[in-house]
């Protein structure tokens, strides 16, 4: 996993609530056996028309939002299936963080394991972000803050300390679990 300390980028805003993982990456793109090409298919059914041509009305097809590194999305982002292809697709599209007022559990777990930072903010700050698509924000994982460049408005966010440590140092969660071998063995022996 790549080290994540700070990200400064402009935002793209998808204000709808309940954007599910079928919208982030439709199921027909799950037949791959690797992680390649998912970024091109992120939000496919919103992003392309029947002929596969980019839909100019969709935000992520518009400059500068197509280059955004931070996605601001409506409440309950990432609901639905457990497909890790969803964070893979968002990372492939160039996003490093998603900001919402609520983020679904499995999506959030999956995102954290891949260096995509899920950030939950209060609705007042969220409204501020959705009102100015393309605004530049600084996300500081060390300080656990999101700052709007324009007026310096800042909000803190909470994150599981373990996931934060892993992201700050680029450590894979599996490395930690593999170090628990003795405890796992002892558990199995006691349970047998």
């Amino acid at each position: 996993m790549d080290v994540f300390r700070q990200v400064t980028s402009h935002t793209a805003v998808l204000p709808q609530a309940n954007i599910d993982t079928d919208q982030i990456i439709p199921a027909r793109f799950l037949k791959i056996t690797d992680k390649q090409g998912l970024g091109e298919n992120a939000f496919y059914d919103w992003r392309y028309d029947e002929q596969g041509k980019p839909n100019p009305a969709f935000v992520l097809n518009q400059n500068p939002f197509d280059q955004a590194g931070v996605l601001v999305a409506g409440d309950n982002f990432g609901c639905g299936s457990s497909r890790e292809h969803a964070p893979w697709a968002l990372l492939g599209k160039g996003f490093r963080a998603v900001i919402s007022t609520r983020i679904a559990d499995i999506f959030s777990n999956n995102a954290l394991k891949n260096g995509l930072l899920p950030i939950v903010v209060d609705s007042a700050f969220h409204q501020k972000l959705t009102a100015q698509p393309g605004a530049t924000v600084n996300i500081d994982l060390e300080q656990q803050t999101v700052t709007l460049a324009e007026d310096g408005a800042r909000v803190g966010f909470t994150i599981d300390p373990f996931a934060r440590y892993c992201m700050l140092h680029g450590i894979d969660h599996l490395d930690f679990l593999l170090q628990q071998e003795e405890a796992i063995k002892a558990y199995e022996e006691a349970a047998a």
């Binding site: 499995i106 394991k113 628990q180 199995e188």
Partner: peptide, 22 residues
Amino acid sequence: FGIGTSEVGHVMATQCLLQHRP
């Protein structure tokens, strides 16, 4: 409960998951 592919790998390798108590 459902898990993502990273966690599928965790369970394969260690039979364990890192979990927050819901």
